[in-house]
Simulated assay, not measured.
Amino acid sequence: MTEAATAPTIGWDDFQRVELRVGRVLSARTFPEARKPAYVLEVDFGPEIGVRRSSAQITDLYTPESLVGRLVVAVVNFPPRQIGPLMSQCLVTGFHDAQGRVALCVPDADVPPGTRLL
């Protein structure tokens, strides 16, 4: 059985509560204090939300230099979460490939930072 087949059904109102927004990575650096290899990302979500920081375990497929300027999709309405010395302010989304590496979830066209997924 697949993971999707075991997930409970949700309603439209449930989905609407998850605020998925597009942001542009302003900076990325290694996060040596993390338990698993990770980067600290600073992501600009536009004037309404601003810049937020996130810890992202995406070191297998990306370098810090390759991330700067990229668009990402993140959940911006989770409560902040302490990850070592970092207060993570959003959750950058991605998918695991067959080897368990995380590939970012990204829009396939240029959209303004802060655009909400609907």
Rank of each mutant, 00 (worst) to 15 (best):
I83G: 10
L118A: 09
L41H: 04
Y39D: 07
I49A: 01
Q89K: 11
A98S: 06
R52Y: 03
R53K: 09
T93K: 13
P80V: 05
D110V: 07
P32E: 03
D13W: 03
T6V: 05
L20M: 13
P113W: 03
E42Y: 15
S27G: 08
Y62F: 10
R70D: 02
T9K: 12
P37H: 15
E42T: 13
R53N: 05
P85N: 12
L67I: 05
F31I: 06
V40I: 09
A109T: 09
G94W: 07
G11W: 02
R35A: 13
R24Q: 10
F95T: 05
A98Q: 12
P113T: 02
V72L: 05
A7G: 05
R101A: 14
Q16F: 14
R81K: 12
F15P: 00
L20K: 10
T115G: 01
M1H: 04
C90S: 08
T59N: 07
D13Y: 02
G69N: 08
G114C: 05
A74C: 09
T9R: 14
G100I: 03
V73Q: 04
R70P: 04
E42A: 13
V72G: 00
R17V: 06
L71A: 08
V40P: 06
I10W: 10
W12E: 12
F31G: 08
D60Y: 03
G23S: 02
A74P: 03
I58N: 07
L91T: 00
A38P: 08
L117N: 04
S66E: 13
G69A: 03
R116F: 07
D110N: 10
D60K: 12
D13P: 06
F95Y: 15
E33L: 13
Q16I: 00
G100V: 01
G69F: 08
V43F: 07
I10H: 13
G46H: 06
H96N: 13
I49W: 08
